[in-house]
Design a protein around this nucleic acid. Structure first.
Lengths: 230, 230
DNA sequence: TTATTCGCTTGACATTTATCAATTTTACCG
DNA sequence: CGGTAAAATTGATAAATGTCAAGCGAATAA
């Protein structure tokens, strides 16, 4: 692993303040692998064998039931996923697949649980990370139950514009993935963009121009208790 | 506090295996209070001052945004709520109100965080509880994104029937609360019951007769990765 | 280059869900 | 007990969302 990647890994909230020895052993025990796009890394219902860390590329968490499927979370570097299943030695509630070519560090679950018991700072960091994940999930549930599709899109655009610091938003995932993440069909995503037209949203392919941020905010009704990132 | 209540409290996952001294101090520092029905215990957006434990009665967690409101979770004895906000010293993402006359133990957040750093077993128990909460939230999100209203009701009935161990389900909350919890309007809950009629569901007020469990399961498509309780 | 594939969009239509209004039922209070 | 208020149901209608089919356009391979 390259030095700057190690630094990035070290910067993970999950590893904040833990002993150097703990960190080194966890990373050494891990398997760092490249995967092509479209590879399923974990399957819902399987026992949690590894803690996964996305070092490069993008990974989609998704879930299925009754023949339907929905995108649950998009994980970018450096991000951890399925921490809860690893900690409690349970099965995965979600599946994961690469959206792009991606590099993923897989740390044996058993090793994580062992260090957990030995390094109080690691345990503490995990609590913080778990707490953050829980609150993200609650926000996602509120987003889904309290807003219409067009509203979810509008707020997603506002957050993305903030992150990209520009008057336009570049969508770096397929729109059908975005649609699934936002809890709608691709067809309805197209129509949601049309709905946002009068509120200062002009799509040009993957680049979305936001011509009137104020109008969009008025329509979206952004709420830190839903859209805020912790 | 009565002896059997102390025993019940001690049986909480959250207090499993922690030192007697820790437990005693936490309970001693807590305020045990009765509340009439309909009292708001905590407000979304307020800083997390207390960890709440429902000792008796029922408490509803709910959330609001853009003038809409939805029920997020129904907490029965002995249950903890808003653990994540307390741990990370953040604001509440959800509000809470009593549905019935209820007895609630409120432990100062600062005290919880202090013991957390001193009692490894307590930290460990909290991780388990947080992990459980996270997985419940993920399940709720899947439930909402992958199922129709009638399907959510059908699965809720199956879980309730299992818990009550009978061929009928007694609904011990107002139906409008149930509707909100299931992510629909009261009107649509009534219609969902009508939809389930041909699948062996016969409502008589608050008591719902399940005349054909097999047919209901066929319609509901129950899934341990959504409906399972951990 | 041309052909082909795949993602995206659009239109028509069906289903699901919400809203508004009216009525019935239930619970509660004097 | 009646009377009142709140909850639950039902009907009519509108809005939101999903499904199916067709067509467009950009990316890719022959």
């Amino acid at each position: 692993m390259r030095a700057e990647e190690l630094t990035a890994l070290r910067g993970l909230r999950l590893f904040a303040g833990i002993a150097e020895a703990t960190f080194n052993d966890l990373v050494a025990a891990g398997y760092l692998q490249f995967f092509p796009p479209g590879v399923t890394l974990i399957h819902e219902r399987d026992p949690a064998d590894f803690l996964h860390v996305v070092v490069e590329g993008m990974v989609e968490l998704y879930a299925s039931a009754g023949g339907r499927e929905t995108s649950m979370e998009l994980v970018r570097p450096v991000g951890v996923f399925i921490l809860a299943a690893v900690l409690s030695d349970q099965v995965y509630l979600q599946s994961a697949r690469t959206l792009t070519r991606a590099r993923v560090l897989m740390i044996p679950a058993e090793r994580v649980r062992r260090w957990l018991a030995q390094d109080a700072a690691f345990m503490s960091a995990i609590t913080v990370e778990l707490s953050r994940s829980y609150r993200q999930a609650i926000k996602a549930l509120k987003n889904q139950k309290l807003r219409t599709g067009a509203e979810r899109l509008a707020n997603w655009l506002l957050v993305a514009a903030e992150a990209q610091g520009a008057d336009s938003v570049m969508i770096d995932i397929e729109k059908r993935v975005l649609a699934s993440y936002l809890g709608m069909t691709p067809e309805n995503l197209s129509r949601a963009f049309a709905t946002l037209g009068p509120h200062g949203v002009a799509p040009h392919g993957a680049r979305i121009q936001l011509t009137d941020r104020t109008a969009l905010q008025r329509f979206a009704g952004p709420d830190a208790m839903i859209d805020g990132i912790e």
